[in-house]
Amino acid sequence: MLRSYIRLILFALGLLVGVQVPGFMSDYSQRIEAHRLEAHQALEGYRKTAGEFFGGDMDRLVAHYRASDDPVFQSDADSLGMLMRREKMLDAQWQALQGRWYERAWHVFTKANPQILDETWQGYRYQVVLTPECMGWGLACAFLLSWIIEAIALALAVLIMPRRRPARRLV
């Protein structure tokens, strides 16, 4: 009886954890998009300058700043290069989050930007959303957690308390 309750608790725990996955991925995706739009906006003035003087080539603008004798322009070249790299990284993150559900999940679990992932964790509020996607994740995690814990418990039971064969009777 106790074993049945433990199974139910594990299943419920897996269910509660699983329904959080789509919400967390959505929050991460929204943060990526917000940072991406902010980076794009920060480069807008530089894009106008590059468009006017360098045919829209931002790399040529950075090279021009670096080649300047003015230390202010050289410093701006470093700042501009950093902004361009950040925008490129955020664009790549955003593109990866536009795929199928399993591609998005794999990306968030394996290739998420650590700073934005941490920012998402800090701002995440646990919630139970009953969309089909959340229910699917919840059931999958519940079954997986239950199955893994049951398998570990069974393996430990076999190791700790092996079954004894009944003694043979000599007739």
Rank of each mutant, 00 (worst) to 15 (best):
N113L: 02
A39D: 11
L145F: 14
Q95I: 12
F24H: 03
A42S: 15
F24E: 01
L159H: 08
L154Y: 13
F73N: 02
L83K: 14
E150L: 09
I148N: 11
G56T: 12
D59H: 15
A112P: 12
V62M: 13
C134S: 05
P114D: 05
L80G: 04
V72Q: 04
G14C: 01
G23T: 01
D57Q: 02
M135E: 01
L90P: 04
Q98N: 11
V108S: 00
Q30H: 07
I152G: 03
Q74K: 07
A42C: 08
S75E: 13
L170Q: 08
E133Y: 06
S29C: 01
W101H: 10
L90Q: 07
Y28I: 05
L2A: 04
K48Q: 12
G45R: 14
H64S: 13
T120N: 03
L37N: 08
L117P: 12
P162S: 03
G14W: 01
L117V: 07
C141M: 09
T110F: 14
R31Q: 02
L13T: 15
A63M: 12
L61G: 09
D57S: 01
K111R: 14
V21K: 03
A157C: 13
P71C: 04
R66V: 09
D59A: 12
V19Y: 04
V108T: 02
L97M: 08
F54A: 04
L37G: 01
A12M: 00
W106M: 00
G56F: 10
L130E: 00
R7H: 07
Q93I: 07
G23E: 00
S79I: 06
R163K: 13
F24A: 01
F54L: 05
Q30Y: 05
E87L: 10
Y46W: 06
F109R: 10
A112K: 11
M135C: 02
R163H: 10
R165Q: 14
C141Y: 11
I160T: 11
F143H: 04
R85V: 15
K48T: 11
E33S: 07
M135P: 03
P166F: 11
P132G: 06
A142Y: 03
R169N: 06
A153F: 13
Y124E: 00
A155F: 14
R125W: 10
Q30T: 05
R7D: 02
R66T: 11
H40F: 04
Y102H: 07
L8H: 03
M89I: 15
S26M: 12
D118R: 14
W106T: 02
A167C: 08
T120W: 03
E52V: 15
G51P: 13
Y28C: 03
Q95T: 15
G123K: 13
K88G: 13
R3T: 04
Q98G: 08
G56M: 05
V158D: 07
A92P: 03
V128F: 13
I6M: 04
Q122N: 14
E103Q: 07
S68Q: 03
M82R: 15
Y65M: 12
Q95G: 09
